[in-house]
């Protein structure tokens, strides 16, 4: 049974359907949040809030998009709120200007760090990506969303997502080669 059908069944009162949905998405969602916050405690709090938000808004769920898109969009919004609460501003990397993203990412201290091109260092390289690029990368790797779906989750357009992914790809690949 697909995610959307499970969510509808849960909305109609089938708790088992929710358990199956949770099992499918708990890992990707948790890692998405964890990679973005780099704090397991914060990640767990946000993770719990996101699922409870989904539970409480089950009556409003409509099968107009993929369930994973719906879920990760809730997560993205919660993350943005988290960023706001931490820094009183959305990270600059979420600006839709690719040039700004590029410039901003180059200015990041982590970008200057030279990481050996080893797989073990990949995680550290990912953590050093700007938030928006990292988010696009994690969404693609963890949830398997397409460019269009990532754009929907992050409420941006396809080209912006592609640009973010391109920069993330370049940085990670070059970091692994070095």
């Amino acid at each position: 049974m697909d995610d959307e059908s499970l969510m509808i069944k849960y909305r109609e009162g089938d708790a088992k359907a929710f358990e199956r949905l949770y099992e499918r998405h708990k890992g990707p969602l948790f890692r998405y949040i964890y990679r973005q916050t780099n704090d397991s405690s914060v990640a767990e709090d946000l993770f719990q809030e996101i699922w409870i938000n989904l539970i409480r808004s089950r009556e409003r769920y409509r099968q107009t998009a993929k369930f994973s898109t719906y879920l990760f969009r809730i997560a993205h919004n919660r993350l943005i709120d988290y960023y706001r609460s931490q820094k009183n501003a959305i990270p600059a990397s979420y600006q839709d200007d690719p040039e700004l993203i590029h410039t901003d990412s180059r200015d990041q201290p982590e970008h200057q760090a030279v990481i050996d091109g080893q797989i073990e260092n990949l995680l550290e390289l990912v953590q050093k990506l700007p938030e928006a690029q990292r988010e696009a990368f994690i969404l693609k790797e963890e949830s398997g969303l397409t460019l269009e779906e990532i754009a929907e989750v992050t409420q941006s357009n396809r080209e912006t997502v592609k640009s973010r992914l391109r920069y993330a790809f370049q940085k990670l690949r070059s970091g692994m080669k070095e």
């Binding site: 849960y10 009162g13 089938d14 708790a15 929710f18 358990e19 949770y22 708990k26 890992g27 948790f30 890692r31 964890y34 397991s40 990640a43 767990e44 993770f47 719990q48 699922w51 409870i52 539970i55 409480r56 089950r58 995680l123």
Partner: peptide, 21 residues
């Protein structure tokens, strides 16, 4: 490595889902 949420968080979420039903 693929980190997962703690069992305590999982239990809280699943109980919340059942309670809602």
């Amino acid at each position: 490595e693929k980190p997962e949420p703690s069992t305590q968080v999982e239990a809280t979420i699943l109980e919340e889902a059942r309670h809602a039903v």
